[in-house]
Write a protein that binds this DNA or RNA. Structure first.
Length: 622
DNA sequence: TCGGCAC
C-alpha cells in the first residue's frame, strides 16, 4: 500500500492552485471574526456545542478568483487561486491528504513524481502549467503523468474535478510536441490526421475539455480541434483542414467525419477516453468499438491508450482491456471523492408529491437566501419530458428555471448552461446529460428529483456540488420506485459517514434486490469501491508473479476502504459549532444560504432530519 | 425502460 504520507512534501509558494481533492479538510478554515484558523474540533456532539456568531457573507473571502496581472489571456482568468494566510495552513493542507490511497498495479510501473519539474514536459507546456497556476501536481497527476509520459497504457480511477483532464492532456501535448518526425511525415495529406484523440460522452463535456486543453497548449503550436454534433459540420471541417494535432470529440460526429473521408485515425498515437465507464456502457459501447477497432485506428500496442473514469465496474474493465496493452491500473483517492464535502439527505417522497415537495424546498430556500446571487440549484430528473415539465412547473410558480436535455437543440442547451452558470436562471433542471464531468462553479444544492437507477450515476450527479473547496448539499427524493437503490445508496452514505434515515436502512435490509442497484456499486461495496484492478480477480493466486508493482502489494485493497474512514473522520472533526436547528425545509433553506457562504454544514443526529450549522467560515462568491 | 451520440 502506498499513501501520500510516505512522500516528503515541499512547502509550496503562493498563490497556489489547490485542486479539489487537496483542499483543506479541517484547519484551513478561517474564522470570520478573528481571521485565525479554526483548528480541529472534537467530534461532534449534538448537545454540547460551541455557539459561534452567525456571520453574513462579505467577511473575509477565502476562495477567490483572482486575475493574474502578468497574464494577458482571458482564458486564464477563471482559474482559482487560494491565498494562504498562514504557514500553519500550508502544513495542514498537506496533512489533509496524506491518507489519500493510491493503488497501482501492472508491470514495471513508473514511479510517481512530486513536482512537474521532475518530468520532461517541454518548456512551452511547463510555462502554461505555471500560468494555469498548477504549481503542484495533484495525486492523480503525480502518478498518472509519469506513467503516461513513459508511454504506458493506463486505466485510471479518479473523481472528476481531481485534475484528470490535465493528467491526460499534459502527456498528450508533451508527446505531440516531441513528435516532430511524425508531424513531418503527416504533411501534405489530404485528410486530417490528428495524432491524438480524446473522446467524451457529451457535447458540453467535449467543449469543456477543449477549452481546458487549449490553455495547456497555448502558444506551443499544438493544434486542438473539437468536433461534436448539433452544430453545422462545415465549420468544424474547416477547423480540421487548418490542421489538427489533438482532436476532442463526441462519438457520433467523429464517425460522421470519418465516413465523409475528412478525417483519418491512421496516425493516432494517443487515445484518451474520458468518463470511460460511460463510454463503454450499453449505449455507447458499439460506437466506441467501431471507432477504436473497426476504423483505421492503429491497434493496441502501437498507440497509447488512456482511460479515465470515476467508477470502473469489473464488466467495464473487461471491455476496456480490449483497448489496452500491458496497461497500468491506477486508483487514486476514492470513488466519488468529493462526497466528504457534500451533505447527503434522502427524503421519502411519493411520486405524486414530488412537485409540491420541491416547491416547498425551493420556497424555504428562497425566503432565506434571496441575497445570494450565485446559489445555484441543480435538479436531476429521469426523462427529457420530465425536465421540460418541471421547468414549466417551476416557472409557473415563480422560480426561474431552465431545462437542459438531449431533446433541445444545441443552441438551447448551451444557452441553458450559460444562463445557469451566470446565475440568470439559478435553477437548472437536467437529465443525465449534465451528470458527468461538467464543472459548474457555485452549485450549492443538487436535488435528485428522480434518483438514477445506478448508484454510480448518483455519485457523478452529486459531484456537481461540493466543488472548489465549498460544501455542498445533495437532496434525494426517494420513492418506492427506487427500492433497488436502497441498499447501494445506504452503503454509499455510510461510507461517506452520512446520516442514513432509519427507513432507508430498513428498506436496504429488507431489499430483495441485494446485488443490483443497476450499477457496480454493490459489487464494489465489498470493500474496494471501484478502485480495484479486475485482473486481480481473474489472476487469483497468481498475482504476485504477474502483477508486480513498485509500491503496491496485492493486499492493499481494503485500505481504500480505510480512506473512507479517514476522510470521514476529517469531515467530522471539521464540523462543529452549531447554532441552529431546523426542520427539513428550513434546513434546506438555510443550507442553501450557508453553503453559498461556504458554511460548514452537517447532519445533527442519526436518523433525524435536523441539521446543525457551523460558523460561516468564508464567503468568496463575488 | 431511460439517458447520452450524426446527419
Amino acid at each position: 500500500m502506498f499513501t501520500e504520507s510516505t512522500r516528503k512534501l515541499a512547502r509550496p509558494t503562493r498563490p497556489r492552485y489547490l485542486p479539489p481533492q487537496l483542499r483543506p479538510q479541517n484547519a484551513n478554515v478561517v474564522s470570520p471574526d478573528t481571521g485565525a484558523a479554526e483548528l480541529t474540533r472534537p467530534r461532534f456532539s449534538r448537545f454540547n456545542l460551541p455557539q459561534p456568531a452567525r456571520t453574513t457573507r462579505g467577511s473575509g473571502p477565502r476562495f477567490t478568483n483572482r486575475r493574474n496581472p502578468n497574464w494577458e489571456d482571458e482564458k486564464f482568468d477563471e482559474l482559482e487561486v487560494i491565498d494562504d494566510t498562514s504557514e500553519e495552513t500550508n502544513e495542514t493542507n498537506f496533512d489533509a491528504y496524506e491518507d489519500i490511497p493510491v493503488q497501482a498495479s501492472g508491470e514495471n510501473i513508473p514511479p510517481p513524481v512530486e513536482t512537474f519539474a521532475e518530468i520532461d514536459l517541454g518548456d512551452g507546456l511547463k510555462q502554461n502549467i505555471r500560468k494555469c497556476k498548477y504549481l503542484k501536481p495533484t495525486p492523480i497527476q503525480r502518478h498518472a503523468i509519469p506513467i503516461a509520459v513513459a508511454g504506458r497504457d493506463l486505466m485510471a480511477c479518479a473523481q472528476t474535478g481531481s485534475g484528470k483532464t490535465a493528467a491526460f492532456c499534459f502527456p498528450i501535448i508533451c508527446g505531440v510536441l516531441k513528435d516532430q518526425l511524425l508531424l513531418a511525415c503527416r504533411d501534405g495529406r489530404p485528410v486530417a490526421c490528428p495524432l491524438a484523440l480524446i473522446l467524451a460522452p457529451t457535447r458540453e463535456l467535449s467543449c469543456q475539455i477543449h477549452e481546458e486543453a487549449k490553455k495547456f497548449a497555448y502558444r506551443t503550436g499544438v493544434k486542438i480541434v473539437v468536433a461534436y454534433g448539433g452544430k453545422p459540420i462545415s465549420q468544424q471541417l474547416r477547423n480540421l483542414e487548418k490542421g489538427v494535432d489533438i482532436l476532442v470529440a463526441t462519438p457520433g460526429r467523429l464517425v460522421d467525419m470519418i465516413e465523409r473521408a475528412k478525417l483519418s485515425l491512421g496516425m493516432i498515437k494517443y487515445l484518451a477516453l474520458d468518463e470511460a465507464d460511460r463510454m463503454l456502457d450499453m449505449g455507447f459501447e458499439p460506437q466506441i468499438r467501431k471507432i477504436v477497432e473497426k476504423m483505421d485506428m492503429p491497434p493496441p500496442g502501437t498507440r497509447q491508450t488512456m482511460l479515465f473514469s470515476a467508477t470502473f465496474p469489473d464488466e467495464i474493465q473487461r471491455l476496456a482491456s480490449d483497448f489496452l496493452s500491458d496497461y497500468v491500473f491506477l486508483a487514486v483517492g476514492r470513488v466519488g471523492s468529493s462526497t466528504d464535502l457534500i451533505v447527503q439527505r434522502v427524503e421519502l417522497v411519493q411520486e405524486i408529491d414530488k412537485r409540491n415537495h420541491l416547491l416547498d424546498l425551493l420556497r424555504s430556500q428562497k425566503s432565506n437566501g434571496t441575497c445570494i446571487k450565485h446559489a445555484l440549484t441543480l435538479v436531476f430528473v429521469e426523462t427529457r419530458r420530465g425536465a421540460n415539465e418541471l421547468e414549466r412547473w417551476l416557472s409557473m410558480y415563480g422560480f426561474p428555471a431552465i431545462a437542459i436535455h438531449g431533446d433541445k437543440v444545441q443552441m438551447e442547451r448551451e444557452h441553458a448552461l450559460r444562463s445557469f452558470k451566470s446565475g440568470a436562471t439559478p435553477i437548472l433542471v437536467a437529465t443525465d446529460v449534465a451528470s458527468r464531468g461538467l464543472d459548474i462553479p457555485h452549485v450549492a444544492h443538487v436535488i435528485n428529483f428522480d434518483l438514477p437507477k445506478n448508484i454510480d450515476d448518483y455519485v457523478h450527479r452529486i459531484g456537481r456540488t461540493g466543488r472548489a473547496g465549498k460544501y455542498g448539499l445533495a437532496t434525494a427524493f426517494f420513492s418506492d420506485k427506487n427500492l433497488p437503490l436502497a441498499k447501494p445508496l445506504t452503503e454509499l452514505m455510510k461510507e461517506s459517514n452520512q446520516e442514513v434515515p432509519s427507513w432507508l436502512i430498513e428498506y436496504a435490509e429488507n431489499s430483495s434486490f441485494s446485488g443490483g442497484g443497476g450499477g457496480g456499486w454493490a459489487k464494489h461495496a465489498a470493500g474496494n469501491f471501484g478502485g480495484y484492478d479486475f485482473r486481480k480477480g481473474i489472476a487469483s493466486g497468481n498475482e504476485s508473479s504477474y502483477y508486480s508493482s513498485t509500491y503496491n502489494d496485492a493486499n492493499a485493497v481494503p485500505a481504500i476502504g480505510g480512506y473512507y474512514v479517514a476522510a470521514s473522520a476529517n469531515a467530522q472533526t471539521f464540523l462543529g459549532g452549531a447554532d441552529f436547528y431546523a426542520d427539513p425545509y428550513t434546513l434546506s433553506a438555510n443550507a442553501d444560504y450557508l453553503v453559498a457562504s461556504n458554511a460548514n454544514l452537517y447532519p445533527a443526529a442519526p436518523h433525524e432530519y435536523a441539521y446543525s450549522f457551523g460558523s460561516v467560515v468564508a464567503s468568496g462568491w463575488d
